[in-house]
């Protein structure tokens, strides 16, 4: 494999893609095995928030933006995370 080809394959977005797939498989395993309870619910939800941040940073390109727009996806994930967590905390 030449150097150009290696750079092509291992660019940051490709690593992010692999991480996104991996976290999705873990989430699916939790789902198909019907794992329930606070630990598993917040584990997969934490993965979801992390995946969202990775998509915002690396796919939407917000990691390369300075100023308020950098935090659009982070702020949304934070608000959604707080609301959903508070709703699930007492019921799982």
């Amino acid at each position: 494999m030449n150097e150009t080809r290696a750079r092509h394959l291992f660019r940051p977005c490709t690593w992010v893609y692999v991480v996104l797939l991996s976290l999705t498989f873990i989430t699916w395993l939790v789902g198909v095995n019907h794992f329930s309870g606070r630990f598993f619910a917040f584990l997969v939800f934490g993965f979801a928030l992390l995946k969202g941040q990775l998509i915002g940073d690396y796919f939407m390109g917000l990691k390369q933006v300075a100023g308020p727009w950098r935090w659009v996806v982070f702020t949304w994930l934070l608000l959604v995370g707080i609301l959903i967590s508070s709703a699930f905390w007492q019921t799982v």
Binding site: T24, T27, M60, V92
Partner: peptide, 26 residues
């Protein structure tokens, strides 16, 4: 291209929350 891409990533982003919320978390 960047405009269309940004919208498509938003559709993906939303599904990342929807999938565990509706199908997995219990």
């Amino acid at each position: 291209v960047e405009t269309g891409a940004s919208y498509w990533h938003m559709v993906d982003l939303v599904w990342m929350i929807l999938f565990p919320l509706v199908y997995v978390m219990r």
